[in-house]
Design a protein around this nucleic acid. Structure first.
Lengths: 332, 332
DNA sequence: CTGTCTTGTCGAAGCGCTTCGATTGCCGGA
DNA sequence: TCCGGCAATCGAAGCGCTTCGACAAGACAG
């Protein structure tokens, strides 16, 4: 056992009394090997604690056994979701015997070119894709197998996975209606969000309003998210316009506490005569009083699906271009 | 330009009219090459968009150019800190031309054995090391160059980096004294924390009390963190025992909101006649009203230092066994 | 004007693995 | 009995890179 220099396939072969190629075939299953021989090889592998040299393997087989995951680590992303995502991706990748290389989005297109050209990874998961994302263009050019989380403007030929926002809007409306509300409203995202991800906010709105047809009145309005005062004004205006309003969905994380404040000021007893539900990647609902039900991004599922799709692509199978994941409505 | 099969060093050599080995030497700088030749090679590299094949490189040079980072991704760790950490580590690693492989702690010792044996990484950063950590033992056995964040019980022969908790305690006391407090107290961690990381909580306490000598009275008491009621009782008892108390340091993240509640009930005006400072990995101070100054774990710095140390070890240099990082007191 | 260093470059030998014929027995059908 | 066919295994040829020893040319001292 040559501990300092590492156990090679030759060591295993010698120990099992076979050729190196036979060991390789036992391990990969790419040719049939007699059970007796296979067993001897496996024993030798176990006894020597053999693990194939990743570099040699990737050189010979043109498969690195590693996928890259590019996360927007630098700016103020929703951390918990990102972690869930990373955790889910690593776990799922390991189930497929792959490792995960972590990249930050600020490596940008050049980073993609680098990992692609150096064959250090077999494929790529790109998180938090924006509508106009320079990385998407680079990706298409490189031809590196990939799965995106989120939808760019031109998704042709790409595999994308995302939350089904229409369903999220619908779920919120359903929840409120289920609580007996007959007049409901959606406070939407701020302008910035609309710019960053076209469709994303609109889809929530669409789902909400469609389901809202079932009650007396349903409407949606945008909501600023930067300063407390304008949020509160927005809420006041809404309440003034719709005195019968009893259900509110908020699709705007930073605004939530201020909305709650404004409702309290207006004498609304949330959870009793008035109902609020939140759509947000974070557990915003947890942080306010009373706790609010919320529609979460099922980050772990998204990651699983993304990695699963990528694996299938790497194995040459087809996967759907677009996969929408059902949101989860959590009631506290 | 053979786009489909990848640009190899031979392509670059041909284009520059030199031998492949010359290209290698230009890129690595391991032998002197005439400026003229070097320039021609660099031009060819740029024109062809050449990136060395990572597997081939690691096979030939016994250096993978990748480090592993093992994070406790699964349980309810302090997410923001983890992200800052991951981000810092990746950024710093890239500055050293290394990539980062992400592993979860639940791969455990077996995961370490795998990455070590397969030479997929050159070294390892182990986060959130606990006092009795089975991975530490495995690590020592493997002889894989590594840096730990946190201190295991037996740190002999290991490189460890962590926050200087004594300094953190001292900083808190200093802050309170600086605000004019003459009678101060530290509400410490719960029992569980004490068990997990010996020394960690004691050191904060030590630093706090040492600096506290400078005023009329300073004391420290443990604090439960699970249920609001017992936290509030603890605070009430403290206030009853020390009617002159005007400064409080809280080293117990989940208890913070309840402490604030209890103080408000007792009629203390935090920020005016009473001062509170928080030690916590999260921006807890941000979430309560009024915002509290807090001593943060400088996660990004920790990561930078850890990666820097690892790089130096990989290059054969010595690094200190133990590095303590100064805490940052942030005043809102 | 030799002999000895340097300096810059080349060629070849691997690194540890996969993979593609080729080879060896062994079976059953003719 | 002979031979085609199949199953099990081997050997050798790379994969793309680094690195070591060689080797031309100058540079320089003697």
């Amino acid at each position: 056992m040559n501990a300092s220099r590492g156990v090679t396939i030759a060591d295993v072969a010698a120990r099992a009394g076979v050729a190196a190629s036979t060991v390789s075939y036992v391990l990969s299953g790419k040719r049939s090997i007699s059970p007796a021989t296979a067993q001897r090889v496996m024993d030798a592998v176990a006894e020597l604690g053999y693990h194939p040299h990743a570099g040699a393997r990737s050189l010979a087989s043109r498969r690195a056994g590693v996928i890259a995951m590019m996360l927007p680590l630098r700016d103020g992303m929703h951390l918990p979701v990102l972690m869930q995502f990373a955790s889910g991706a690593v776990t799922e990748a390991r189930r497929h015997d792959q490792d995960v290389l972590l990249m930050t989005a600020d490596e940008g297109p050049a980073g993609l070119a680098r990992v692609a050209a150096s064959s250090i990874v077999d494929g790529l998961i790109l998180m938090d894709v924006e509508v106009r994302d320079p990385r998407v263009e680079a990706l298409r050019r490189l031809g590196l197998p990939s799965v995106l989380i989120g939808f760019p403007a031109d998704a042709a030929g790409l595999t994308c996975v995302d939350l089904d926002f229409t369903a999220a809007g619908r779920e919120c409306a359903s929840y409120l209606i289920g609580r007996g509300c007959r007049d409901i409203a959606l406070l939407g995202a701020s302008e910035v969000v609309y710019e960053r991800r076209t469709g994303f906010a609109e889809r929530v709105r669409g789902g909400f309003l469609a389901r809202g047809e079932a009650c007396d009145h349903a409407e949606a309005r945008p909501c600023p998210d930067d300063d407390p005062v304008s949020v509160q004004r927005t809420v006041k205006e809404l309440l003034a316009a719709r005195p019968e309003l009893t259900g509110l969905a908020v699709h705007n994380e930073p605004a939530v506490p201020h909305v709650m404040h404004a409702l309290a000021d207006a004498g609304k007893l949330v959870g009793e005569d008035f109902h609020v539900v939140v759509i947000g990647p974070d557990e915003v609902g947890e942080r306010v009083h009373p706790r609010l039900p919320s529609v979460l991004v099922p980050a772990e599922r998204l990651a699983e699906i993304a990695v699963g799709h990528l694996m299938r692509k790497l194995d040459g199978f087809d996967v759907p271009d677009s996969t929408l994941v059902e949101p989860q409505l959590t009631v506290r």
